[in-house]
Every structure is written in C-alpha cells, then in structure tokens.
Design a protein around this nucleic acid. Structure first.
Length: 447
DNA sequence: GTAGGGATATAA
DNA sequence: TTATATCCCTAC
C-alpha cells in the first residue's frame, strides 16, 4: 500500500491550492521516511508551499526558509547546480524581507536595522559558512548596498523606492515553473493517461483492425519508468515525467505538466493529440509490468479525490469559478470522457451551478468511460444557522495582491493617510477596494 | 472621510 | 486557543 500512499500524497500535494491540506503536515501524517525515493515528494511539498505563499501574496522570511529547504532537497537529488532563478529568487526575497522595513524616512528609525541583522548578518551569514549555492554575486551586492543604506541616506532612499517585491515574485514564479516542469506529471495521472490511451487503442483495433506504428510518447515513457520503478521498490521514484538526467522531455513538460498550466485539462489536451494516432509498440511491451490491481486502485483513488474535492470542498469550488481574481487558479474539474462530450462543449464550457449539477447527475452513469464509484448525494441540512456566514451584505473575502500592496505603499508615501486620494490615484488597481479597505490594510501592514 | 473596535473566517 | 487577515459598523 506504500506505493498507493505515495501516489495519493503526490496527487494531493500537486493539485490546486487547498487550504485544508498542508503538504508538510500531509507528509508527516503519512510518515514517509527520509529515503531517497521520497525526495520528489518532498520537493513537490516545498513547491506547493511556495506556490501557496505566492497565491496569498506572501514574500517573507518563511519564503526564505522554503528556498533553503529546496536547495538542500535538490542537492540530495544529486542536482549539484542551483539554477539562476533559484539564486535570484532567494536574493530578491531576502532583499524584500529587508526593504519592507524601510518605510520610515531614515534608516535610524523603524525596524530596518533589525531586519538587516536578522536576515543578512545571521541567516545569510550561516548560508555563507555552509558554502550554500544560494550565495551569489547578486546577493553579495545587495548585502553591500543595504549596509551602505544604513549610513548613506541617498542609497537608503534609492533602495526604498525600488520595487523589489515585484522582482522577487517574478523570480519565484520562474523558479516554480522550472521546478514543476522538471517534476513532470504525477504518478496517478500518468497511469490514468496511459489507461485511457490504451482503451482508445483497443477500440481502434476493434474498429478497423489497423494500427499506426508511432514512437512512444512522453506519457508512455513516464508510465514505463513508473512501472519499472514499481518492480524495483528499493529504487522507486515518483514524478514519472523526470528524465534520467533530471531534464524532463519537453513534450512531457508542455503537455502533461499538471500544475501551473491547465492541470487535468492539459492532460486531456495531450490525450486529444495522442488519440489522433495509436499506441506504439512499446506500449504493448510494457503492459504486463503493471499490476492490474494497483492500476485500478489508482484510477479509483483519482476519481474519489476529484469527486470528494468537488462535493465537499467549497474552497476548491471557489477556485474553479470563472473570473476568479486569483490568476493562479487551475481548473481541476474532472472532464467527461471525450467519448461522451463534444469538442465545442469542452472548449466553450463555463462552470455554472446549473451545469455543475448536470455533471453531478451524470455521476450515475459512466465517467472516463467506466463506472464511477458512487457517493451519496449530499443533503442540505434544514437547520437555522446560529450565526450569519457570508450574509448577502458581506463581500467575499479577497486577499490583497502584491500589486495592490505596492500601490498602497506608494500611495501612502505620496499622499499620506488620505485613503480616498490614494484610491482615486489608482482607480484600476483599487477597483475592488474601498478607502476603508485601504485604511484597514495599511493598519495591518504597519502592525 | 477617517479612525478604531468588533465580527468573521482561516491557519497554526 | 491564538494569531492574522479581511470586512463591517459607528463615532467623530
């Protein structure tokens, strides 16, 4: 069952931000060891935490912790070269952790010198002693400039007015994109894709008896690696899309990368493309290696996860709503089998309560071409709420984006605490914010 | 229009 | 239970 445990953990960690699931806690709860075969899982966990931090708009010393942990994990994976995006993300995040305390007009006031000591002298001092690859020339230059800022008001002002946060977020996003691509698709999704491809191939054989011979695609390769890994449990590796040299196949990355793109929808696109051809010869050769029981269990687990997610997780449903303010939202809505849907319905489909219930009703039939495990239909409780929960008069909670925070800081610098003027000066940025929101946020920022 | 306290939701 | 972020209400 250990294999299935890992598949589920990997799948849950890699899916869209879920405030109910902490990747770190999940790994701890499932009590995976520190063996090398769990490294990909741990890397996924750190990337998920980083991604969640960015979704929350957090670029802080917790981000530095995650970047340091990521470096250690990558080194354990024998990836001896730390990428430039990793170095730059760390450098700019460290800078942001200091610059954020530069709001007083001079270095002698506020918490700037405290932050300088905490982040650069202590934290980065330890990094230097350990010979960390995160200590770059850029980092050393920033350290020098920030130390100069303590004595030189001009340097202080120059750094104070720079938009470090934006650059830090850009590098963090770049780092996440690169690392997710290296990890490739999750094990469960790889097996699910392969199963669907196989079914399609079988139907082609039954239909016309002619098979096109085609070079096995990245999905096949992922599955092959997964299956061979299963045979050799001691060396089992997750992240089936990763190549032997750590560089994922480009087609795999683009078509099957499951997180920061369109998730499962991209998987379907990959399937769509592959379905135009037929299964390659190697596909047949590898088939006997995978235990049927595990294969079916993996598929059922995936179905369960998606269904449970859709049925009981309001936060996820909110993520799936169109026009969500969060750019990072990923559509993980289970798509009906291509056999049962048209291209236009897929391309033009917009999630609404009506068609959501329509999907619910279809759960009694087949999904992805097979019988889906039944879940009892949730019955709304007919009780009087003890207190209001998001009453009609209350706006939905909307977290501040880095752009809004930056605009607010700039506004305070220019107009002081004239919230109305700040809002009017940035009508586009603060379109969804009242002047009271600005005041509340500023109160929160200076706490 | 702004400040401050309270209510609510969520994560640790 | 506590801390934090966001939203709401009300006094000035």
């Amino acid at each position: 069952m250990e294999v299935i445990d890992k598949w589920v953990a990997e799948f849950v960690i890699r899916r869209q931000h879920n405030p109910r699931v902490s990747p770190t806690n999940l790994l701890s709860a499932l009590r995976f060891g520190d063996s090398a075969d769990c490294l990909n899982l741990k890397v996924s966990s750190v990337l998920r935490d980083l991604s969640d931090s960015l979704i929350r708009g957090s670029v802080d010393e917790g981000t530095l912790d995650l970047l340091e942990i990521l470096e250690k994990l990558l080194l354990q994976q024998q990836r001896s070269v730390i990428t430039e995006s990793h170095k730059s993300a760390y450098c700019l995040t460290a800078a942001e952790c200091t610059v954020r305390f530069m709001w007083p007009l001079s270095a002698s006031e506020g918490l700037f010198t405290d932050a300088l000591e905490r982040v650069w002298t202590k934290r980065i001092g330890i990094l230097k002693e350990s010979g960390s690859g995160l200590v770059s020339d850029e980092l050393v230059k920033w350290e020098s400039d920030l130390n100069k800022a303590v004595e030189d008001p001009e340097v202080y002002q120059r750094i104070r007015e720079s938009n470090v946060r934006y650059t830090a977020v850009s590098f963090l996003n770049q780092l996440l994109k690169e690392q997710w691509e290296v990890l490739g698709s999750s094990s469960i999704e790889s097996v699910a894709q392969r199963r669907l491809l196989k079914r399609k191939a079988e139907s082609n054989v039954e239909g016309d008896g002619v098979r096109n011979r085609e070079v096995p695609n990245a999905v096949d390769e992922s599955t092959r690696r997964l299956k061979s890994d299963k045979v050799d449990n001691a060396n089992e590796r997750l992240g089936a899309g990763e190549g032997e040299d750590g560089n994922g196949d480009s087609r795999d990355v683009e078509g099957v990368g499951c997180l920061e793109g369109d998730g499962i929808d991209k998987v379907n696109e990959q399937l769509s493309a592959d379905e135009e051809g037929a299964m390659g010869a190697q596909e047949q050769e590898h088939e006997p290696c995978l235990d049927k029981g595990d294969e079916m269990a993996a598929r059922e687990l995936k179905d369960y996860l998606l269904e449970i997610q859709r049925q009981i997780d309001p936060s996820t449903r909110q993520m799936q709503e169109p026009n969500n303010a969060t750019d990072h939202s990923v559509d993980v809505t289970p798509q009906p089998s291509r056999v049962n849907r048209t291209r236009t319905s897929r391309q033009n489909h917009i999630e609404t309560p009506d068609n959501a219930s329509e999907k619910g009703s279809s759960s009694r039939g087949t999904w992805s071409g097979r019988v889906r495990p039944r879940l009892s239909t949730p019955v709304p409780l007919n009780v009087t709420p003890l207190r209001k929960v998001d009453s009609p008069g209350r706006r939905p909670k909307k977290f501040w984006t880095p752009e809004e925070v930056e605009a607010l800081r700039e506004g305070v610098k220019e107009y002081g605490k004239a919230w109305k003027e700040i809002k009017n000066a940035n009508p586009a940025v603060f379109a969804d914010r009242t002047e009271v929101d600005l005041k509340d946020k500023w109160r929160n920022l200076v706490r």
